[in-house]
Nucleic acid binder design. Sequence first.
DNA 1: TATTGTTATACTCTATAACTATA
DNA 2: TATAGTTATAGAGTATAACAATA
Lengths: 139, 139
Amino acid sequence: MTDRHDLGAAFGRLTRAMVEAEEPILRRHDLEMWDYVLLSALESAAAPTQAELAATVRRDKTRIIPLLDSLEERRLLSRTPDPADRRNRIVALTDTGRAVLRDARAEIRRMEAGYLASIPAGERKVFLDVLDRLAAAAG
Amino acid sequence: MTDRHDLGAAFGRLTRAMVEAEEPILRRHDLEMWDYVLLSALESAAAPTQAELAATVRRDKTRIIPLLDSLEERRLLSRTPDPADRRNRIVALTDTGRAVLRDARAEIRRMEAGYLASIPAGERKVFLDVLDRLAAAAG
DNA sequence: TATTGTTATACTCTATAACTATA
DNA sequence: TATAGTTATAGAGTATAACAATA
């Protein structure tokens, strides 16, 4: 009940600020934001189907297809038919894709560190900790 | 360089979660999200021009016009020509608009409190404090 | 001539609905 | 018949450009 901003407004502003700050970094790596989101989603494990991948990044399955086309053409990921059910296509990072993702992310992490530099270390740790817990809960 | 999520991804998820959680509340008060954003922007002071109001909420001046039309028709705000320069229209909350804003915000604050209830009070305070500082810096 | 608010037009993005190939 | 992927169509949302009123 304090006089602070709405959470939604605060998160919204920070989302926009991060998107703007990431944009030039991603462009240096020839990635659109959604390319990066897709590559990130594939980092821990390959997606067994495109539909599942679409669900995890919360976009329609029809809308990631041009992105996958582009990423596959640039050899950042592979689409291989599932032998057990050839309707499915298993989407996985290539070594190149993993390297590009690692490099882009390293730059983004440096940008983020600069962005949070004015926050004292103790508070920053708590902030990032709570943020990650909330984000995980938000699915 | 830890294994945490990107800030952008974390903020993005939480933004979406808040928008979804606010949606039913706002609907109970017959407000769209952008209605609420506009009313909130007018809370501290009236906007001297529509263009300035559009800039503060980061939308095109042409796009807030239908929203202002609707809010004005419902007597939640007023548009009065500036006597000093009759091209300008001063946009201000009405008493009704202020009351609706207050009620909606109170409900949103309760929702937010529930959303953060699992975070220990000490961490929660730090989190909200840092969040508000970052959001303010993000403009 | 320049600017505010407004309206109209064009464009992009998103959602929905067909189509194919497998099962 | 049902489902994954794809393509095509329709609709919503957004940006740009023209217009009227005032300065």
